[in-house]
């Protein structure tokens, strides 16, 4: 009973974290599923978003403007990775790693050489704060996060229905076809990466406000959490959620479920240090399932033939 009570009181926090990471996971979805690139830039750009936002708020900038600047910082990070891929011919995974590594130094510069910079909700009017997550009020971060996510998902849904958005989708699914139809695949790859990292940086900016500080390590393993959200969403809702808006919703729900499960295993006494490994194992298993299933199906088909 005690356990359940503790879990229940931790639930709003888990949902809020899931929603914040949901924005990030949508960003990962854009690269991983639409562009068909595993972009590792996000581990850096998440922290860049957080650092940029926190430092600007500390300088007295309006939190919304600070958020906007954070998004811009992520967009630039995506641009750099995109140019590495399209102008320098560096393989996407490596391009992401290079940007991510250099962002570590850049993030320390942004945070004035400190690994952690606090932004207190007492001093600044933050957009979202952990403190109010159990309150029944308009300041509860769950309200803002839900509204923001809905707006973002609607905008992205509309965007990927435009000529430009369709061109990005075509680029991700078949570059040959895209070029034959006059689509500049390099431009669209860069654009997709910019969009994705803008979303990731936005998530980082809100996360930093939510937890009251930006940390240079806050993005470590972010790509894996993003992938976990994407995959959990697909496995649980993939059969039902077919249209693009619902697919994004599945990703967000995937992130929320990830954080709720995390809360449960933490309550059960799991060592926090083991979290990253568990997440990695989870993602590895879910990524393997389609492959194993394919092997199994092939075996079954083979067996059937032999019987005949």
């Amino acid at each position: 009973m005690n356990l359940l009570g503790a879990l229940f009181s931790a639930l709003p926090g888990a949902i809020a974290q899931g929603l914040v990471w949901g924005i990030m996971a949508i960003g990962v979805y854009v690269t991983f599923r639409i562009l068909d690139i595993a972009d590792l830039t996000v581990d850096g750009s998440l922290a860049t978003g957080g650092a940029t936002c926190v430092m600007l708020i500390r300088l007295g900038l309006n939190p919304w403007l600070a958020l906007l600047c954070a998004v811009a910082s992520g967009v630039i990070a995506g641009l750099v990775t995109g140019l590495f891929i399209t102008k320098c011919g560096i393989p996407p995974i490596l391009a992401g790693i290079l940007t991510q590594l250099s962002l570590y130094s850049i993030n320390l510069r942004i945070m004035e050489s400190k690994s952690n910079q606090a932004v207190s909700v007492d001093k600044y009017s933050l957009l979202a704060s952990q403190r109010y997550v159990r309150d029944i009020s308009i300041f509860n971060p769950l309200v803002l996060l839900t509204v923001m996510l809905l707006i973002l998902m609607i905008l992205l849904y509309l965007f990927f229905g435009t000529e430009l958005g369709s061109a990005i989708r075509a680029t991700g699914t078949n570059q040959n076809m895209a070029r034959a139809q006059g689509i500049n695949t390099k431009f669209n790859t860069v654009l997709g990466l910019m969009l994705s990292n803008g979303l990731v940086a936005m998530s980082g900016a809100i996360l930093a406000q939510y937890q009251g500080s930006a940390d240079v390590n806050m993005g470590r393993g972010a790509i894996v959490i993003g992938l976990a959200a994407v995959i959990i969403g697909e496995v649980l809702f993939g059969k039902v959620f077919r249209n693009f808006f619902l697919k994004m919703l599945a990703v967000v729900l995937g992130a929320v479920i990830y954080y709720i499960v995390l809360q449960i295993v933490l309550q059960l006494g799991l060592n926090t240090n083991d979290l990253k490994m568990l997440t990695a194992i989870l993602v590895a298993i879910f990524l393997s399932i389609p492959y194993w299933k394919g092997m199994l199906d092939a075996k079954k088909a083979g067996a059937k033939k032999e019987v005949k």
Partner: peptide
């Protein structure tokens, strides 16, 4: 239909108008 719509815009500038 999306494939056809992509092809119908071959050589055109692709902006923020509806894809189909």
């Amino acid at each position: 239909v999306e494939n056809l719509a992509l092809a119908a815009r071959r050589g055109d500038k692709r902006g923020l108008k509806w894809g189909i």
